[in-house]
Write a protein that binds this DNA or RNA. Sequence first.
RNA 1: GGAGGAGUCGCAUAGUGGCCUAGUGCAGCGGUUUACUAAACCGCCAUAUCGCAAGAUAUCGCGAGUUCAAAUCUCGCCUCCUCCGCCA
Length: 411
Amino acid sequence: MLDIKYIQENPEKVQQSAADKGVAVDVGGLLDTDREYREISTQVQNLRAERNVAAKSRDIEKGKELKVKLDELEPRLKELEEKLQEMLWTIPNPAKDDVKIGKDDTENEVIRTYGEPTTFSFKPRDHVELGQLLDIIDIERATKVSGSRFYYLKNQGVLLEQALVRYAMDTLIPEGFIPIIPPVLITEDTMKRLGYMEHGGDEDMFRLEKDKLVLVATAEHAIAPIHKDEVLSEEELPKRYVGYSPSFRREAGSYGKDTRGILRVHQFNKVEMVSFVKQGEDDTEHEFLLGLEEKFFQELNIPHQVVKMCTGDLGFPAARKYDIEAWIPTQEKYREVTSVSTVTDFQSRRLNTKYRTKEGTEYVQILNGTAFSIGRPIIAILENFQQEDGTVIIPEILRKYTGFDKISPSA
RNA sequence: GGAGGAGUCGCAUAGUGGCCUAGUGCAGCGGUUUACUAAACCGCCAUAUCGCAAGAUAUCGCGAGUUCAAAUCUCGCCUCCUCCGCCA
């Protein structure tokens, strides 16, 4: 949500930045509603002031008269207030100035590349084949039990996942991140406040209609609202969390896409970073989080590139977003493995999360970024480090966590 | 799931229809005093909106209602506590 004052002062800018994101909004209509709301609000306030005076002096006749007037205006004021709020909620967070204006993901920019695409002296197997051969991924049986886009992770696959989780934790905890395992069911209201219910965003979520709960699509959804309706102290910022939780996605509208394997699934575990920082510090924090993500994939020695999203690919709440894409040999493509965004104070306005300064209170700025969204780094490891016989060499940095240095077909 | 109790300005508490523009204590902030610390004393000390300002309005878990007037009465919901049931 944007500050209404900002919209009053920069209507064209707001209209344009929404258009840059491909979101149609009616800023003129919003400002009209705002004007009308303030007009009625003033009238109501004056009537209430009179009523309070009348009540104090026990002027019952006058009070009755004012009650009639108020009964007429108050419902109207409430109606306008709700309408204004709804309209405010439809305005996306504007992209930062350094973000390229573009229509969709085809206009994103590669800003850095690490390593060279892996080459093989043999025909590499894809992760589905490797998963079967090594007996660590079972998609067929999961389909029988849960339907498409689910999988069982087994044997050393499980230990590999836990190694990634522990590696992330051991790296992030010394950086001041608070480890946390959040609830994965959140209220619809919470999801709305995060800015993911607008513009069809709710189509990608699993929902429990009866209980009015939503399954989180990332730990961010359960961690970013942790300080809802709180005023933090300035000294405790930046406050950083590293969460570990399952993530659930319906993947509606992606039926034809990535149907093979575990690249795109309905449920996966994820290690996620969330930062709460002071106003003006989100740019530095954004680079910091991106730096950590790059460090992970460098240390794993997985070839990758860093992509900066254009306005059309940012989503509703983000003001800037970088993805890391890892090289997937059998697809001969870089595929997304992490994503890090600043949502500035867009979510904290909706969530009412502030911090106290000497002058008063300010909204915090919130950032979120992936450490590991488990299926995908496993795909990257399997495919990039496979040998001719199907054996997969475990990256050095993970070996102290896995306890083994390779996964072989015989195992 | 059933029965009972409770939710007040950071914390603790007072407040059962108009004297509440919510009192008091603690904590916090500023000052006086002091070699320093402490104590004592004095002052400040919720948020949002509108307004140049003076000020006004709203908020006592949330929402609706009764009333000229609601923290206070009524109804619904949420959360917490106690007990019963069920249960990893």
